[in-house]
Design a protein around this nucleic acid. Structure first.
Lengths: 200, 200
DNA sequence: CCTACCGATCGGTAGG
DNA sequence: CCTACCGATCGGTAGG
């Protein structure tokens, strides 16, 4: 299989960062398992063996991508939480914050969402625990909104999954240079998911 | 990497069907690229070489899974279309029909959603064309609902992607033996996505 | 960062 | 459905 990989390698980055950036693009395009270290090396214009002066293993690259994304999600979530007034506002801000992390790097997001399962233990368990913890914050927001009479009575877990899956999917189609700006999409995502598609 | 694969192989199926069923489970768990023909053969209790009396190639198995799912989506969409009265009802039925195909086989759905990109041409292009065609039916429903004043004015493509991503994600968490029945989830998906999370 | 190379495993075929 | 096997490729190491 021949795939022409056109990639602009940022010369201001360290070699290690270049490796991570290239790997992110390749993992997103072909998947982690189908990307070989020789693919990665060729894209960078070096030999496969040379990669190992900068990294320990193929999996280490994946771990770095996944955990860096996880940390970003946590960081913005906390910031969004502190800035909010009422409960609907808090949900809205948390959703937009989540969306903004995704569009900051849609390729890394794709790897985060699809390739994490190729990590070995104990990284895999740690990763899943973080994800659960992250979702539990959304769960709390939904519960509070129901208790205060703002949100409809609906299975909490279900509500969180429905909301997050729509936002997560944006990594697949959102283009920064498209007709919708990031703020536009963030606004509309919350409008539809909180307010509904129907005119009431 | 050792993974214990516990799988019940349906003895009423033909060998070819057993291969497809096993492959579906493995592709879902480990991904297409990380699943070897030896993995598949071991799960079935035969030698890898023996698989090739029933199938032509590894990719052929993937093609069958993906295109069978695509056909099912089309079939139920048409049925849902014919049974509907008003425009909101039509969207609701199309959504529930889509959901029901997913939960009929969540493993095959996972392969359909995540592994299709490992198909080679011309299968890949055919597959993407089908997906686009399928989504365009949803697009038409949204447009009609906007024209009739039932749905809010919002980018059509965006609306379709938001709706479908939430439903598609159910393959990851829906369990037939969980506390929510299929009808329950189908109802609630349409309630939230069409009506919104907020009490108006 | 390279050359040279390792053992393991890959999808698949030949022939029975 | 098996044994025996193919060339290609895998992630990674040794040594410079």
């Amino acid at each position: 299989m021949f795939i022409f990989v056109i990639m602009i390698i940022d010369q201001n980055l360290t070699r290690k960062e270049q490796i991570s950036q290239c790997a992110t693009a390749l993992f997103q395009q072909k998947g982690y398992a189908a990307t070989s270290m020789r693919d990665l090396a060729n894209t960078l214009g070096i030999e496969a063996a040379s990669l190992y002066s900068h990294i320990k293993s193929k999996e280490e690259i994946l771990q770095n991508i996944c955990f860096k994304m996880a940390e970003e999600f946590f960081a913005v979530q906390q910031r969004a939480f502190q800035q909010s007034q009422d409960i609907e506002d808090r949900l809205r801000n948390a959703m937009i914050a989540h969306f903004e992390v995704i569009i900051r790097d849609t390729k890394a997001s794709a790897v985060f969402f699809h390739e994490w399962r190729h990590m070995s233990e104990p990284y895999l368990s740690d990763f899943l625990k973080m994800r659960e913890q992250y979702e539990s914050i959304f769960l709390d927001i939904i519960k509070e909104g129901q208790a205060s009479g703002n949100f409809i009575q609906i299975d909490n877990k279900f509500a969180v999954l429905t909301i997050l899956s729509s936002i997560n999917w944006t990594h697949n189609w959102y283009k920064p240079d498209g007709k919708m700006t990031a703020d536009d999409v963030g606004q509309k995502l919350t409008d539809v998911l909180i307010g509904g598609l129907k005119i009431h």
